Computed example of a mutant assay.
Amino acid sequence: MSYEAWIILTGSLVGVTCGIIGCFLILRRMAMLADAISHTVLLGIVGAFLVSNSLDGIYMLIGAAIVGLMTAWLVQVLHSTGIQTDASIGVVFTSLFALGVVLITLYAGNIHLDVDHALMGDITFVPWNTVEIAGMSLGPKAVWMLGSVLFLNLLLIGLFYKELKLTSFDPQMAVAIGIPVAFIHYLLMGMLSLSTVASFDSVGAILVVAMLIVPGATAYLLTDRLSIMLVISAIVGVCSAVVGYYLAVCLNVSIAGAMASVAGLLFALTFVLSPTHGLLAKWKARRGFKQSNA
């Protein structure tokens, strides 16, 4: 594959991997927790580096999963003591992210991981960091990592689809019929953490947050069925990556920033033109109601 194709494939995998997880977060009204975890995993990455002295992908995944689950747990603990959810997220998010920044400054200043890299990523270098076996290149490490995490997420969603669906729409009902709501919640948080760190090194936190929230929010405006919502979210993620790449090339701007901007543009268009929930459809419905009652 060409250099350009690897970059587009990486962005598309980020869009699909984060997009399908984002659907469940949107339904659970936990979108801002995705923002928190996408930043606090920096602490997990730095911690994994300090323990293993390596930036190998498996250590990063383990570190991020631990910190991601810890973030969700701390938010839940603070909320259970009476603190509002948004305040709980704000306290945990800023504290853990700041701690990660401090540890980078103190102990990881001589490696390629820094705050700018964490926020914006550097997808242009993805094709050069490859997996090699017996001297043969098998493609970028980021593609293999994202592909593996996507496969794992799809497997878990397939195995626990009914549980994820019910706990997202009606958690009280799920508790009543004996579904382990806490287990499903932390399973989703683990999937979120793995998806975040698999995308983090390549595209940075900004695009990760965009792909976790915007494709799912866009799909939410277009359908009332979860299965279709997952598919639409993945399509929006891929379209954002492809169009965003060519826009970045034309304007000579950040690729990750362009991809996030295209995702926002697609949401804006959907917000206006959605046949059921769009502003135009609501305006027509109100106009028709007024005319019928005139």
Rank of each mutant, 00 (worst) to 15 (best):
D114T: 06
N293I: 13
L226P: 03
H277C: 09
T40R: 04
Y246C: 04
I37C: 01
D116K: 15
G15I: 01
M145N: 11
A234Y: 05
G44P: 03
V91D: 04
L69T: 07
T94W: 01
Q291A: 14
I232W: 06
A205Y: 01
T85S: 11
V253A: 13
L207E: 08
L33M: 13
L154A: 10
Q84R: 15
D56Q: 14
V92H: 03
V75T: 00
P171K: 09
I66C: 09
F271Y: 13
I66F: 12
V77D: 10
I157R: 05
D122S: 11
P127Q: 06
S168L: 09
L113G: 07
W6K: 08
A217V: 09
L150M: 11
A48H: 05
A256N: 01
L222D: 01
L42N: 04
A205M: 11
M173N: 03
S52L: 12
W73D: 02
V102C: 06
L188W: 00
P180Q: 03
I133F: 15
M70G: 05
G264A: 07
I232L: 14
A217K: 06
L230C: 02
A34R: 08
L221I: 03
G121C: 02
M259N: 10
L103T: 04
A72D: 02
D86F: 05
T124E: 14
V238F: 00
G244Q: 02
D224I: 10
G264H: 07
S227L: 09
G278M: 08
A5K: 12
L42V: 07
K290L: 14
A205T: 15
H185T: 12
M70V: 14
M189Q: 05
L273S: 12
L279P: 05
V272T: 13
T81R: 14
L230Q: 06
F169S: 10
G11K: 07
V149Y: 00
S227P: 01
K165H: 14
L156R: 05
L150A: 07
I177G: 10
F97A: 03
G278P: 02
Y220K: 10
K284F: 14
V126P: 05
S80R: 15
L106R: 10
G82C: 09
I179L: 10
Y246I: 08
V46G: 08
L146S: 01
A281V: 05
L113M: 13
P171Q: 10
L61R: 06
M32K: 06
N153F: 06
I235P: 07
I45A: 13
V14I: 14
C250P: 00
T81N: 02
V231T: 11
V91A: 12
E163L: 07
T17Y: 03
L222I: 02
L187Y: 00
V102I: 15
N153V: 14
V102E: 08
I177Q: 11
L194R: 08
M173E: 08
I20T: 05
R287Q: 14
A198D: 05
L43S: 07
